[in-house]
């Protein structure tokens, strides 16, 4: 069956059975009782990469390709720890990193987390920073 753009959107209503948390817990187990019994942790309420990939498809189909790209990069970043995310952001700020540091960062993200779209994005930043004098001197 051909699905219209955003066919399953909102996933909360139309695909609840397929949704699970970052910790792989199904949405049906995210209940007030589970909270009360202390069965849930922060990761049980975090977004799974699959949901972001689905949102990326929905956004692309609805004519928002850049937003879809953002969601795809975000999907890759779900498994990157908080502290590392903050460090990567810091390195991408002006004059924080050398070209080599950014390239190494891209390689690391790709090899460790399979984050190839982020890696490509960071490599592009490295090239532009060199061209525009935004690398660390």
């Amino acid at each position: 069956m051909h699905e219209k753009p955003g066919g399953k959107y909102p996933l909360r209503d139309n695909a609840a059975g397929d949704l699970r948390s970052y910790s792989e817990r199904p949405l049906s187990e995210i209940t007030a009782e589970a909270v009360a019994k202390g069965e849930l942790s922060g990761d049980d309420l975090r977004t799974h990469a699959d949901a972001l990939r689905q949102q990326a498809r929905i956004a692309r189909d609805a004519g928002y390709p850049q937003l879809a790209g953002n969601f795809s990069r975000a999907a890759e970043l779900t498994s990157v720890p908080n502290d590392e995310l903050l460090k990567i952001y810091e390195l991408l700020r002006p004059e924080r990193a050398t070209h080599e540091e950014l390239t190494r960062l891209a390689d690391y993200l790709e090899s460790t987390y399979g984050a190839s779209e982020n890696a490509a994005f960071i490599r592009e930043a490295a090239e532009t920073y060199r061209e525009r004098n935004l690398l660390r001197r």
């Binding site: 975000a74 995310l85 952001y89 002006p94």
Partner: peptide
Amino acid sequence: FVDGDDTPWSKAFLASAYASRG
């Protein structure tokens, strides 16, 4: 942009970082 201590790439990355946390 640089005076604001960012670049379009750092801001875009930050956007993805937020989205990754829902």
